[in-house]
């Protein structure tokens, strides 16, 4: 499996309303008109990069590594947005609320680091609809366990495919942090944090199943139009 295969499948599963793919298609058309293959300024260029052949993207990263990093960035966006919304909701309490403050800050730091590394090749932050899971303790914890397990499995699955040892070193460092988060959330949810001696790599299908079951990536509502105003004047 190549990196871009996994990213495409991730998108297909996670992009409930086609918002990311739609953005990508618009971007691709614009780039075609301009006879540019690699977008330097548009956030959704990662999808294009995944469709390009071998070579190097901007910033010295290989295109396959860029694709994998953007795949990871989407997951980091997902986690950071989830914890941030949960903290702002003010609906969580006790140890869970304290954990949210710590983990949320870490996930936001991950996002910032990915954005800095990827520069103009970074995908844009999608809009997330957490459907109330950030506003009630038990749904929150159940979802947090799923998202952390998802992140751990995703890093584990992608790390062997990274070409750059420097990127691999960074990914391994983040992977272990995500594993600690997963254990923490499991503990808070009341399930055993570590029962297996070895974590089997999760299949693409299982990762996609978890992502698809959330339906968390949503389309931006239409708030702009060209229609004539009907206001009182």
């Amino acid at each position: 499996m190549s990196g871009h295969d996994s990213f495409d499948e991730f998108l297909a599963a996670a992009d409930r309303d086609g918002a990311i793919v739609e953005t990508s298609a618009q971007l691709e058309a614009a780039l075609s008109r301009r006879r540019l293959l690699v977008a330097a300024a548009a956030g959704a260029s990662a999808v294009l990069l995944t469709q390009a052949g071998p070579g190097r993207a901007a910033g010295g990263l290989s295109r396959s590594d860029t694709s994998i990093l953007n795949y990871a960035l989407v997951l980091e966006y997902l986690q950071a947005s989830f914890y941030t919304e949960a903290e702002r909701s003010g609906a969580l309490s006790g140890k869970t609320a304290r954990a949210v403050r710590v983990v949320g800050a870490v996930e936001r730091a991950h996002v910032e680091a990915f954005l800095k590394l990827l520069g103009p090749d970074a995908v844009k932050r999608p809009l997330f609809d957490f459907q109330g899971t950030t506003e009630q303790q038990q749904p929150f914890l159940k979802t947090a366990v799923a998202l952390e397990d998802l992140a751990v499995a995703a890093y584990k699955g992608q790390a062997p495919k990274l070409r750059s040892r420097a990127v691999l070193a960074a990914a391994v460092g983040i992977h272990s942090v995500e594993a600690r988060h997963a254990a923490w959330m499991r503990e808070l949810f009341g399930i055993k944090p570590a029962v297996h001696a070895f974590d089997q790599p999760a299949s693409r299908a299982s990762i996609n199943q978890v992502v698809a079951s959330t339906h968390f990536i949503a389309r931006q509502p239409r708030t702009k139009a060209r229609s004539k105003p009907k206001y009182t004047g």
């Binding site: 730091a109 750059s164 070193a169």
Partner: peptide
Amino acid sequence: APTPALTIGRPEPLRSSGFLSRWTS
């Protein structure tokens, strides 16, 4: 051993949300 490609900054707490409001559709 390679130097990790990512430099993870110090985790920062959320800024005060006194001027933030929420909306939905």
